[in-house]
Design a protein around this nucleic acid. Structure first.
Lengths: 362, 362
DNA sequence: ACCTTTTGCGTTATCGTTAACGCAATTCTA
DNA sequence: TAGAATTGCGTTAACGATAACGCAAAAGGT
């Protein structure tokens, strides 16, 4: 590998000059610059990441802004785990990542968390914004760079990237799976497809629902849909919402689509009820630790997920790559939409063990 | 973050001593050792990965042993791409990874490729072994560490890890999907499930078939199975095999399961034929660049994949982590079994853009 | 013509870890 | 007990990139 010194020798100048040229910090002649840049190209020079990282050790710090860890049935706990993992891995060369959490049902809370994070001295922010348009102005005024996970806010100058999923498309995918699950027309099942809408659903969840309905109305027009607003604050509230609903209904739904991880609350309601709800196809979102049981016993047929742990991990790593190592990062990563069912469940949960890396000395 | 110097100061010794103790390379007293180790624990010392990497720059080299890049309809090309990506990323601190390829239908060829790789001066090997039991002895005698991808050979002293999928389980998953795809019993479809077996199928592919049949005979006992041996050397040979088969048959198969990426050859045979083969559910393996068309137009209903590019990338990185950075790595990573269908296809292919990272200078 | 900037470049200390080297003090050997 | 070997430790030069600093020579200003 060519080093700065190799380039310098080849160009007949010192490493200081080469460095100044590559970083464009003045004090060099156009002629030398041209020669150096040509040599950098020819000799295929790539900065040594370790040398760069070493020099910049311990000077940067990042902060994350996400909803409260208890909200969304544990979804944000996974995000938090990803942040933790990245933080540990970067421990040698960054301050620990500080997380600012907020109440996802309050725009004000979100904005003040962002303000707090921005004022914390961090060099970069990872934000999961549940952000109505009015909030944008505050972001526009911020002077530190940030990236978004989960939900995007495009068109901001300091925005580095977005890592998230295509919500509408994920709804479409759910629709496809639901079509398959309801293909069995031997039994007489005529109920509607039930869509469980968390209260205060964000545009995200709305897109999922839209994609779902869009696919099915095009591909299985005979289906009817019914929306049910549910309380997702606690498991008990959620069960209450369902109890009310099912006690009024004579017809069982033909299938149920839960827009987020509240699908596990649904499962914990239906599963103990036994025979009555057996065979209702259920599709929902997110793999929550400790809730795998309901996938294993097929109460839940399909879970879709964007691997939030991984997503958050990569968000922090992106900040590091961009701000510390000065890599340019391809913007707007669309994360894979994973389909999880009983048979591949364990390949998504067991894999986490791989990260139990420890340093050894020799 | 605590550094070696912090530990040394706290212990009242020099960094040289601390280093010798942590690396266990003699010349220290038991008392000092105990004190230092206690302090390392207390002060939560973690070696700075960049400093370590910098010091060890450019000394290690790795080699990969995989089947010929043209075999398996492009599968190994993906593996190769993953190796390349890792190699690029490690360029600052390792020699470029050298790949030794072999003919997957010849054990001898495989063993001699391994021998060549082992003799190439590499410090570690990543091997994709298509390896009958007799070959194992040669591996046992090797004196450099190695890891396996794709297929495992357990019980060897120098074996560092295995990264691959659970083949049987992936067959089970295929079975589940096939059950769903054949749930629609309105039309009279009574043909058997056709399983396409590549000639010289390894134990890997056999397990997939076994899992598939296992699931379906338990969960849909009325299904019949029919195995068809196919030539997978070239697309033309493959089409020939199919032509012979279909010209003899009056009944169309109820579904087709291809054990590997030859599913695309199947698709290129069936798709132009138009109406006749429409609506036969097809499940196969691996996402091959340039062949996505057949998933998009739903000739192929489901593709399963273990993301071979990612798998190979992580294999090389594992060698680096283990042998250069002295991290211990959790053994035997089971990679996620991804289910790909028209609706999430693009999230698996577009994601590669994210890796177009380039260095910038300031 | 003299003084001040600016330009163009080289030199150097630094980041934390590694491992070779050196040097006493102690222990062992003949 | 002299000489050799071993033990316990400190010192130091890398690894490559970065950026502060210094210093000539050239350009600009009066």
């Amino acid at each position: 590998m060519a080093t700065l010194k190799d380039i310098a020798d080849a160009a007949g100048v010192s490493i200081g000059t080469v460095d100044r040229i590559l970083h464009n910090r003045g004090r060099f002649s156009a002629a030398t610059a041209e020669k150096v840049r040509r040599l950098v190209d020819e000799m295929d020079y790539t900065p040594n990441i370790h040398a760069r990282g070493l020099k910049k050790t311990g000077r940067r710090s990042f902060a994350a802004v996400i909803p409260d860890i208890e909200q969304d049935a544990g979804y944000w706990r996974l995000v938090s785990a990803g942040i933790e993992r990245a933080s540990r891995e970067l421990a040698s060369f960054c301050e620990p990542v500080v997380t600012f959490s907020y109440d996802q049902f309050s725009t004000e809370s979100c904005l003040s968390a962002i303000a707090a994070a921005a004022g914390s001295g961090a060099d970069g922010l990872m934000i999961a914004p549940v952000m109505p348009p009015e909030g944008i102005e505050q972001l526009r005024k911020m002077d530190i760079p940030f990236m978004f996970i989960d939900t995007d806010v495009p068109g901001l100058e300091k925005r580095l990237a977005f890592i998230g999923q295509d919500s509408f498309q994920s709804g479409i995918l759910s629709g496809r799976l639901m079509k398959m699950l309801t293909a069995d027309s031997t039994e007489e099942k005529s109920g509607p497809i039930l869509i469980l809408e968390p209260e205060a659903a964000n545009s995200h969840l709305q897109s999922r629902a839209d994609g779902f309905v869009h696919f099915l109305s095009n591909n299985k027009p005979e289906l009817e849909f019914e929306y049910l607003q549910v309380q997702t604050d606690t498991e008990k509230d959620f069960h209450q919402s369902l109890e009310t609903f099912f006690s009024r209904k004579k017809r069982l739904p033909r299938g149920i689509f839960a827009l987020n991880s509240s699908v596990y609350f649904l499962a914990s309601y239906l599963d103990p009820a036994g025979q009555r709800f057996r065979d209702i196809p259920i599709i929902g979102y997110d793999l929550i630790e400790g809730r795998e049981y309901y996938i294993e016993n097929e109460t839940i047929n399909f879970i879709l997920t964007q691997q939030p742990e991984e997503q958050a991990y990569r968000g922090i790593m992106l900040l590091y790559d961009t701000l510390v190592l000065n890599r340019t990062v391809g913007r707007d990563i669309t994360v894979p939409l994973n389909i999880i069912t009983k048979e591949n469940l364990h390949t998504f949960t067991a894999g986490n063990k791989e990260n139990n890396q420890e340093f050894v000395y020799e």
